[in-house]
Nucleic acid binder design. Structure first.
Length: 425
DNA sequence: TCTGGGGTCCTAGGACCC
DNA sequence: TCTGGGGTCCTAGGACCC
């Protein structure tokens, strides 16, 4: 029987912030999404105050002062760096690792000797000591069961942060399945949960009793697979090497509504630069770029939103070529007289560099100067910060009138010499 | 007044083929 | 009046994840 572990950091963003501001321990802390829009991470104290995951800031803003909540803008540079260290520590426990997201990782511990619970505790302890983050460990014969056990490890005190499916008695397993709502299962989201509930399927145990054929025909192959995974049959492989991306996007909501085409051009330019940078660092090329703009979906007045895909003559990673296509697309979909709230670009039809089929008229050697130019731009931007070098159409104002709101962002403690934490004497 | 960003995969339906 | 069966490919939309 395989033993898959899922290691997941507790309130990851909040824990990262607390690491550098220990005075935040024990206090309600909330980290906001981009543009200071919604709550995306909450300390247990903030959860206890009833602030929901994803809840818009303005809906609970009045509680900030009365309940002394600490509100922080998200600091992805910091979180990404701590995530890298966290994953590094985990890799010491098994060579078979799948980094699943910024704050969680699967490990195949099948071949790792020793008592699983003690092993889980050792993982917790080492991550705590070496990186400073609190984590919980769930283990099971499939990824879905490992996820579910991680949920138990987090929510139920009796597990002390580590839950291994195989170490539980049959009765204990049954009780947990009966007591857990089906919506907690990985792969069962809001819509599916609602549909299942109207059919009388409320607990994970109910779900396991459904006829697989019926599940498959009614809900599709994914849910049937989820059921098998919960029965202990491993259907999802550990993906040690992440497959090449199929799309790369960059989009942002604006801090202020935007009406002028010139401002949208600035935004689309910056997003295209960012997407092209990601493309190059992945060693990929794109043959399709899609531009989208839209007004706020939350306003009652007439809305406008459109996207357009512009095909390129050949796969490219050149900011210049991608930008020309993006701005041409933007011209076609822009309509005067609307208050735009968001814009974005998406690159797709991606191929790995060097595997492209050249057309009759392409001259690969002509791209060499451009390649060197782009490498230089990427190097400068890595050293001097995002957007240090950008096309002129991006404009010179900074911050821009429409830049996203980030009212209370913490310093880049671990990635910028200028922002290193200082030790007070 | 104020509501994130970046991904993946599946399915249904239409166009088209023999 | 009555008009097959089986396949591929593409796209849009919808669901899921963190």
């Amino acid at each position: 029987m395989r033993r898959i572990a899922l290691v997941d950091a507790n309130n990851f963003y909040v824990s990262c912030e607390r690491l550098f501001q220990p005075t935040l321990e024990g206090r309600p802390v909330v980290v906001l999404s981009n543009n200071d829009g919604c709550a995306v991470a909450r300390s247990p104290e903030a959860k206890a105050l009833g602030i929901q995951m994803g809840q818009p800031y303005f809906q609970w803003k009045d509680r900030v002062r009365t309940r002394h909540i600490v509100v922080l803008s998200s600091n992805y540079t910091l979180y990404a760096d701590l995530s890298r260290r966290f994953m590094g520590v985990l890799s010491q426990f098994s060579p078979l690792q799948e980094v699943y997201s910024i704050d969680e990782s699967f490990l195949d511990l099948t071949a790792t000797p020793g008592d699983p619970i003690l092993l889980g505790q050792a993982i917790r302890q080492r991550v705590r000591q070496w990186v400073g983050l609190p984590v919980c460990v769930g283990m099971g014969p499939s990824k879905t069961l490992a996820k579910l056990c991680n949920h138990f490890a987090k929510k139920r005190r009796e597990f002390a942060g580590v839950c291994d499916w195989a170490s539980l008695s049959r009765e204990h397993q049954q009780r947990l399945l009966q007591e857990t709502p089906v919506g907690e299962v990985w792969g069962i989201g809001r819509q599916l949960c609602q549909k299942l509930e109207t059919l009388g399927v409320r607990s994970v145990s109910d779900f396991l009793q459904q006829d697989p054929q019926w599940l498959r025909s009614r809900f599709g192959v994914l849910l049937a697979r989820t059921q098998r995974e919960l029965q202990g049959q491993s259907c999802l492989a550990l993906e040690e090497v992440s497959p090449p991306k199929q799309q790369i996007q960059s989009s942002r909501s604006f801090g202020q509504p935007v009406t002028a085409l010139a401002d949208l051009r600035e935004a689309v330019t910056l997003y295209t630069c960012r997407a092209a940078e990601k493309l190059r660092s992945a060693g990929q090329r794109a043959q399709l770029i899609e531009v989208s703009i839209r007004t706020s979906v939350f306003r009652p007045d007439p809305q406008y939103g459109r996207s357009i895909a512009v095909a390129l003559a050949h796969p490219t990673d050149s900011t210049r070529e991608l930008l020309a296509a993006a701005l041409q697309g933007l011209r076609e979909i822009y309509r005067d007289g609307f208050q735009y709230a968001k814009a974005g670009v998406r690159l797709s039809a991606l191929s790995v560099q060097g595997t492209d089929t050249l057309d009759l008229f392409s001259r690969p050697e002509a791209g060499e100067r451009e390649t060197r130019l782009l490498q230089a731009v990427d190097t400068v931007n890595r050293r001097y910060g995002k957007g240090a070098l950008a096309p002129g159409v991006a404009g010179l104002r900074n911050p821009r009138s429409w830049s996203m709101r980030q009212g209370t962002k913490s310093p880049a403690y671990t990635t910028s010499w200028a922002e290193l934490p200082r030790v007070r004497a």
